[in-house]
Amino acid sequence: MTTPAHDALELIGLRAGYGSIEVLHGVSLRVPPATVVALLGPNGAGKSTLLKVASGTITPKDGCLHVGGVHVNGADAAALARAGICRIPEGRGIFPNLTVAENLRMWTGVGDLKPAEVAERTYGRFPRLGERRKQVAGTLSGGEQQMLAMSRALLVDPAVLLLDEISMGLAPLIVAELYELVGSLAQQGIAILLVEQFAQTALAVADHAVILSHGRVTRTGTPAEVEEHLSAAYLGGAA
């Protein structure tokens, strides 16, 4: 693989927040293609906010947001989705009142996949969704809902995948299955930025790690380098 000219996602001195409250105070971060970056830090550090800014849900107040080397400050979420950004939001990133098949139809809004291809990619990976394609998504189990949410990444071939706590409330077996998928997506060349409260789960698949604390990057490095500082930043002195 040749070294690409640009990072898939780059944040430079980014400031953002909600209304008058600033949450991110100048964050810089790079995610190259085919790389998994784990974004760690205590609650309220601004991790989810960062992902929302990167996907266009929140407009940054200052700093630069680059996607594939292109300056995209101010582009809205729908436009960035077309530019290859795919954020799976915290909680379940699904439409609860739509059926499984209808959810998948929504995911294909960006590309133009044939129904057969949609079925093959999704139900091939998650046969359980295939069995429940007519079922309303809100009645699926938590694991199945997360699989459905993750299937968006399978269908839109994103350049950048932003994952917000995909393991929340899920059993370890399902978490393992989801992370296996994360690994294989990275191998396909997708740049992945991963927010995860189970630090060790995230570090196991990450190539690179960043600790965010009070809206600032306090440490970056390889998973091994960051892990030493983890308990202090993440759990206080307790662990």
Binding site: F198, Q200, T201, A204
Partner: peptide, 17 residues
């Protein structure tokens, strides 16, 4: 609670991969 291995696993997350 702090010493309980189940708590450590739940709170820190077992290495899934």
């Amino acid at each position: 609670v702090q010493r309980d291995p189940a708590v450590q696993a739940a709170y820190l997350g077992t290495s899934a991969a």
